[in-house]
Structures are given as C-alpha cells and as structure tokens.
Amino acid sequence: MIIIESKRKKLENILKKYPGAVIVDVTSKATDGLVKLSPFYPHGGIPVPFSEGYTATCVEGIWQGLKVFENEDIDISMFLNDTMKGIKRTVRKHGRVLGHRKGVHGTEILGYVEAKHQIYIPAYRWMLEHRAMYIIERLRKASETKTIVLLDYNTCCNVDDETKPLSHAYLVKAYAEGLYPFDDLKLSEETERNKENSPKQLSLFD
C-alpha cells in the first residue's frame, strides 16, 4: 500500500497513523537516492513537450520555463538549470501568470489544468520511464508487503484542481500502482542498466 502525506507533518504523528510504515521522502530535500524522484532533480535529456530539439535537465525546469507571465514570456534558460535551486519563476517578479506556452515556438497558451495534462504529466512520466524506472519497480514490489508513505510538500491528487499544485508523489504512486497506461512502455537500455545498479540507499525496500 502506498500513502501520500505532507512532509510538513511530524514523523511521529505519521507513524502513529501508520504503525510500521516505511517513510519515504521524494522531495528535493531527500538525503538518499530517492531524491531522483523529485521534479527538481537534474537527470538531463528530458524532452520538452511540443518542442522538437529541446531538452531539459529536470521536469521543474520545463514547467517553469514554459510559463508565460503578464510581464515576461517563456524562459528557456530554465531548461539548463541543474542546481535544484533558483528554478521557480514567481508572480511577484514577473506579474500575473497567463498560462503555459504549448512548446517553445507554440502560439497556444494552455490554462493551468491543461498544462498539467499536456506538459507536466508527460514530462514527469518520461522521467520516470527513462531515468527512474528501477526505483518505481522496487517501490512497487515493496508496497506489496509494506505500507509506504511518500512525503511531498504538495499532497493534491486531483489533476483537474485549478487551485492547487499537483503532488508529484501522487504520480509516483499512480505509476507504481499501474494507474498510468503501460501499453506503450518501453524500457531503454539506460533504464535496464539502472535496474542492475540500484543505489544502496534503496536498501530499505529489500
């Protein structure tokens, strides 16, 4: 079983609710190999949706880079940020958010919900399939016998919620539980190598 809880909650309270659970931090603040599930992690080579020839170091760089503000258009320099810092583009600095451009050279501006469906989720799924599938497989196997609590700063699991950011932990849970479509899943050679060389930090799933 996989549960999502807020990283802001006290661990002792989470463990009272789920005795014996394995607590897994999947945020950018994680101190083990599971930080690779964070949308801020610089895997590199992630294709930018609707933007042939463009790739980004991390999913968050795509999300922020394609964002269009009242006073500023997209910023493709976000695609190159590999520091896990300074990726957020805020309304305080750039004005009201108008939406997300559908591709670097696109003319259509997507609303918040549509952008989650067409930009964020496909980019994050690509990252899972090509950069972190070995983690998902171990997580799926562990959840068969253990209660796994994924910690995220955002806990919204409703993709169509127009008021709250989507929890990437929810996407991890969805993929591990088979809620994402699997019919076109093709593991790359790199993914296979990663499965064979799983980092020691994931030993808690053994």
Rank of each mutant, 00 (worst) to 15 (best):
L66I: 02
R140K: 14
Y41N: 04
D25N: 06
Y54K: 09
Q118T: 04
A169Y: 01
R138P: 02
A174H: 01
D73I: 07
R138L: 05
R92P: 00
G95T: 06
K17N: 10
K116H: 02
L150P: 03
E189T: 04
D82A: 12
Y124T: 00
K7N: 08
I109R: 07
K9G: 01
K93L: 04
F40E: 02
Q64E: 13
R140C: 03
R138Y: 09
L34G: 06
G65M: 00
V97W: 02
S143H: 04
G178L: 10
K93M: 15
K36Q: 13
Y134P: 02
K164Y: 01
D32P: 01
N194W: 08
G33L: 05
T191F: 11
R8H: 09
S203Q: 08
A115C: 01
N71Q: 08
L66S: 03
V24Q: 13
A115G: 14
P42G: 05
K93Y: 09
W63R: 02
Q201G: 10
E189Y: 14
S143K: 10
A30W: 03
D32H: 10
D73R: 11
Y170P: 01
K7H: 11
G33Y: 06
S77E: 04
Y120I: 01
N13T: 07
H43Y: 06
S51K: 14
Y134D: 14
T145E: 13
K85N: 14
R92G: 08
V104P: 06
D75C: 14
Q118C: 03
L110M: 00
T57L: 09
A21E: 15
P199C: 08
L128M: 07
Y18M: 15
G61H: 05
E189R: 08
G86C: 01
N194M: 15
I74V: 05
L11G: 07
N71M: 11
L187H: 10
S143Y: 00
L179N: 13
T163W: 11
K9A: 03
T155G: 10
K173Y: 12
D75L: 04
K102Q: 12
Y54C: 10
F182H: 09
V159K: 13
H100F: 13
C58F: 12
